[in-house]
């Protein structure tokens, strides 16, 4: 009898000890929560971004936090774990509804994946504003505060066209993730601004970069191997552009190519200043976030809801301005950029 029961009881005992230890941790946590826990009458505004790590969303979150503080709101920020984490974003919105949020600002991972839960939120009387990325259909949310990515693409394309002058264009497209909403708008906008259509023979080829520098470099290398005459490069964002530049340099072509981009991250603007990127189009995440928080504050105070698409604007940033194209220089860019 002895051995087994002794063992068993020791096992049960150690489980119990472990359980008690966790209780202790949990109550420690409770202490921490007690300090920061929102008062019942706080107006809660939720922010759900795509990921935690992207500096664009970090800027958004910082701006939302700052604005919430000045307006006396309580901000609860949440994010998906990776690009494409619909499940995580849906859960975040559900939790925020449960938490009693007055308004939710969301950068949807994907334009259709969130529709059900957004409807649930709005049915529960929560103001829902899409930031940065529109939903499909766009009126699934109360309002959208975002860059007009198509317009930004047009600005990029128009600049590239002007900078190239009357040379015969040979274009490389460093796309992000094909099928993504933003990706499509920027890509098509660029073509429109450049004045050509999809499938135009001037397009030497396209590469998928997922907006990452390493993949941008590999993609550009492959495209250059395919066609050495490339003289215009579209990039989905500045990291992809930085990667593309590395490839151009290794082919000794960095001087002959017009490398353009979109985003307005500080690293990107520094690259404009350094002459690596000819021009980039800056967008304004902090504007989206602070305008969003303001809208929720308004709604809480007066019940007034914003509607429709609100363009938070985009500026062409370049140190080599082209006649007829509005632009700001890199010094201005560095004061207004996001990330570090």
């Amino acid at each position: 009898m002895q051995t087994s029961h002794h063992d068993r009881s020791r096992y049960a005992l150690s489980q119990l000890t472990a359980g008690c230890a966790v209780f202790a941790i949990a109550f420690g946590l409770a202490g921490a929560i007690g300090v920061s826990y929102a008062q019942a009458d706080d107006v809660i505004v939720g922010l759900v971004t795509k990921t935690e790590v992207n500096p664009f969303f970090v800027k958004m979150r910082q701006a939302a936090e700052a604005e919430a503080k000045t307006k006396g709101l309580k901000l609860i920020a949440r994010a998906g774990k990776f690009d494409g984490d619909n499940e995580g974003q849906v859960a975040a919105i559900e939790d925020l509804i449960s938490a009693g949020a007055k308004g939710i600002l969301v950068t949807p991972n994907n334009s259709s994946g969130m529709l059900g839960v957004i409807k649930k939120a709005r049915d529960a009387g929560v103001l829902v504003i899409a930031l940065d990325t529109a939903t499909d259909p766009a009126d699934a949310v109360d309002a959208t505060f975002a860059t007009d990515n198509f317009q930004a693409g047009v600005q990029q394309g128009a600049y590239a066209k002007a900078a190239l002058g009357d040379k015969k264009p040979v274009i490389a497209m460093l796309d992000g993730t094909p099928g993504g909403t933003v990706d499509t708008f920027r890509h098509n906008g660029f073509l429109k601004g450049f004045g050509i259509a999809e499938g135009d023979p001037a397009i030497a080829g396209a590469a998928i970069t997922n907006g990452a520098q390493d993949k941008g470099q590999v993609g550009m290398e492959n495209l250059l191997s395919k066609n050495g005459d490339i003289n215009v490069v579209y990039t989905i964002n500045e990291p992809a552009a930085a990667g593309g530049y590395q490839a151009l340099k290794s082919f000794g072509k960095e001087k002959d190519v017009v490398l353009t981009s979109i985003d307005g991250g500080c690293a990107g603007v520094r690259n404009v200043k350094a002459g690596i990127i000819a021009a980039t189009v800056m967008q304004f995440p902090y504007k989206m976030a602070s305008m969003g928080v303001d809208a929720v504050a308004d709604y809480a105070a007066s019940g007034k809801k914003p509607t429709g698409f609100v363009n938070t604007g985009s500026y062409l940033i370049t140190d080599k301005p082209m006649p007829g194209l509005d632009s700001k220089d890199s010094a201005w860019g560095l004061q207004n950029c996001w990330g570090d």
Partner: peptide, 16 residues
């Protein structure tokens, strides 16, 4: 069950 929760098919979903 996943389609019941989110009526959306996404090749980038469920990475973790």
């Amino acid at each position: 069950l996943a389609l019941g929760r989110i009526p959306n098919a996404d090749p980038n979903a469920l990475q973790t």
